[in-house]
Every structure is written in structure tokens, then in C-alpha cells.
Amino acid sequence: MNLKFFIPFMLFFICSESMSENKINEKVIEDYILNNPEIIIKSLRAYEEMTEKKNQEELKLIIKQNIKKLIKTNAYAYTGKADSELIVVEFLDYNCGYCKKAHNELLKLLKEDSEIKIVYRNLPILSQNSMQIAKISTSIGLLNNRDFNKFHDFLLSSRKLPDDKKIRGFIEEIGLSFNEILKSSNSEEVQEIINRDIEMANLLNIKGTPAFLIGNELVTGYVSKNILKSLVYDQQ
């Protein structure tokens, strides 16, 4: 036989056989999956677990690399012992209902252990009003810790966010000038502080409030006092 025609013929035959085998193998695999659909579910779960583990490892590395910046207070925006090493960082929005609920748990935690320090970071994501309140709170926080905590408690102890009239009345009631606070709240310094808080939240991929950073653990959503307490003492 002329090799000129034989070689192409053999190549075609081999490829055809290979394609035929592939089709058979594909059919076997397809039938197996159809008869055992749990294989797909197990595979997806394994992939999700692997991805979650990788994400957690990356997050812990980010926290470790930025921990000093993350736990540093914005002026006087904290509650508890100023020089404590037992630190909870909370990202919050004053319009957030779960932040109000979590606030009660934080107060219970501090009542049980006054050595703990809560550092507050603004994440005003729910409305434009959230940003304005965050600015006012930050502005008061630049003055002193006592008045910051009074205003902070006032906002989070109310079922609904107080209106402008009540906010103005409370600020003047604690001996501060509302006009001066309002002027300060629109300063570049205040905006830069809030921008840094938002940048830190983005760094940790925080999408909602409240969120708590305790040691190298990030917990999102409402958590009880007991869970917070357990995480705090795990730092030691």
C-alpha cells in the first residue's frame, strides 16, 4: 500500500477510535452522576469549604498586618479602660437596629468586666443621614470621652434615631454648642477620620453592621454578650 495514503488513514482511524472512547467515557460519567447526584453536592460543599478556609486565612493575615491601625482609637471614640489590651472594635451605623441591640450586649459586657475597651468605628452605609450623624458623633469624640459616650448612648438607646430637634437639644443639654459641633462635623479632619474607618471596613470586606473585630477574629452581625466575652478572653 502506498504510505502516502496509509498514514493519513491510520491517523483518522486512531482519532475516530479515541473520539468514540471519549464519547463512551462521557456517557458512563453522565450516567453515574445522574444515578448519584449527591456527588455534585459533596463536590460543591468541598469547594465551598476550601474557598472559605482560604478566605479566612487571607483575612487573618490582613488583620495581623494591620492590627495596630485597626485597634487605634479615633480620639475619644471608645468606652471602657483607655489602656486596656482586651479590645473589641465595633463597626457601626447609628441607623442600624442590630447595632442598637448589640449596644445593650456591649454595656452588659463592660458591666461584668471594666477592663475591656470598646473602640468604635463608623460605617455609615444605610443612609445619607447615617453619614451626618457619624460626623456629629466623631466631632464630639474629638472633644472628650465623657461627652462622646453620652451622645453615643443617647443615639443607640433610642428605638428610632432621634430627629434633628432632639439631637440638638441633647447636645446643648450636655453643655456643648450645637453650632460649633455642626461646624466641626463638616471639617476635613472629621471626614478623614470617617474615610479611614470606611477604608478599614473595606479592607476587612465588611458589608454590613454591626461587625466586631476581636483579636484576629472578625464576627459580623448581632452577637450576644456571652459570645463577645468568650472571644475577648480568647485573646489572652
Rank of each mutant, 00 (worst) to 15 (best):
L3I: 07
F5Q: 15
P8A: 11
M10G: 01
I14E: 14
M19K: 15
M19Y: 03
M19A: 11
N22G: 05
N25H: 15
E26N: 08
E26P: 00
V28H: 03
I29S: 05
E30P: 00
I33Y: 06
I41K: 15
A46F: 08
Y47T: 06
E49I: 06
E52H: 08
E52Q: 07
E58C: 05
L59K: 08
L61P: 02
I62F: 03
I63E: 05
Q65V: 02
N66C: 13
N66T: 14
K68P: 01
K69D: 04
L70N: 14
I71N: 04
Y76W: 06
Y78H: 06
A82Q: 13
D83L: 05
D83T: 00
S84P: 03
E85Q: 15
E90P: 09
E105Y: 01
L106H: 08
S114G: 04
I116F: 04
K117I: 14
I118R: 01
P124M: 10
S127F: 02
S127P: 04
Q132V: 05
A134Y: 03
I136D: 10
I140Q: 01
D147R: 10
F148T: 00
F148M: 03
K150S: 07
K150H: 08
K150F: 07
F151T: 02
L156S: 09
L156V: 05
R159Q: 14
L161M: 11
R168V: 04
R168F: 02
G169E: 15
E172H: 14
L176C: 07
E180D: 12
K183I: 07
S184I: 04
S184M: 06
N186L: 12
S187Y: 00
S187E: 08
Q191N: 15
I193F: 10
I193A: 04
N195P: 00
I198Q: 13
N202L: 06
N202A: 11
N205R: 14
I206E: 12
G208C: 06
L213E: 10
L213F: 09
I214D: 12
G215M: 09
G215Q: 12
G221M: 01
Y222W: 15
I227N: 13
S230I: 01
L231S: 05
V232N: 12
D234I: 01
